[in-house]
């Protein structure tokens, strides 16, 4: 089977890879590009552990074929911090203990970053429903929701 040559942008860097037609974006991120921060929780788009942003839109990387990344801009958890400088959401999540096992954490952070870019002033209800596609089995969500609300307020204050 001939492979597909894809040129895309990942976390701001132009990236080239070869993939099989049936490989998902998640397969390529994890297995070819060593970007293992995106996790496979279910492989069917139900858990959100592989959430990435493609051209500004939140998607499950397990539901997108890698070939579809051609010419697009992909943001993953690995691009969220600026070197050692954590994104305010990342900083708040660790300060507020809004994580336990950590497998859902990258997807939730990517999803909430996307939310705050769209809506810097979400209500708690909007946060809860925006995150309804990201399963967390450990925390019970409370600290996550509080961390997002707090970060949003901080970021509005800083802007």
């Amino acid at each position: 089977m001939s492979q597909i040559h894809v040129i895309t942008t990942i976390n701001g860097d132009e990236t080239e890879f070869l993939c099989e037609a049936q490989e998902t974006l998640l397969d390529v991120l994890r297995d070819h590009l060593d970007l293992t921060g995106s996790k496979e929780g279910c492989g069917t788009g139900d858990c959100g552990a592989c959430s990435v942003i493609v051209d500004g839109r939140l998607v499950c990387a397990c539901l997108m074929l890698a070939g579809e990344a051609e010419g697009r801009s992909v943001e993953t958890i690995e691009g969220m911090a600026d070197g050692d400088d954590l994104h305010p959401l990342q900083q708040k999540f660790l300060e507020m203990a809004a994580l336990q096992c950590g497998v859902c954490t990258p997807g939730i952070l990517v999803a909430t970053k996307n939310l705050l870019e769209r809506n810097p002033n979400p209500t708690e209800e909007e946060v809860r429903y925006w995150l309804a596609g990201n399963l967390c089995r450990c925390t019970g969500y409370d600290k996550i929701i509080r961390a997002v609300m707090d970060t949003a307020a901080d970021m509005r204050g800083a802007a």
Binding site: T36, G37, E40, M80, L86, Q90, L94, L99, G102, T105
Partner: peptide, 23 residues
């Protein structure tokens, strides 16, 4: 003391290594 999880920085940056992440 209310100390953060020892892997918290790795959790939030996606650098925590789980079994499927081992090269």
């Amino acid at each position: 003391q209310p100390i953060a999880h020892d892997s918290a920085v790795k959790h939030v940056t996606g650098r925590a290594e789980y079994c499927d992440d081992i090269p």
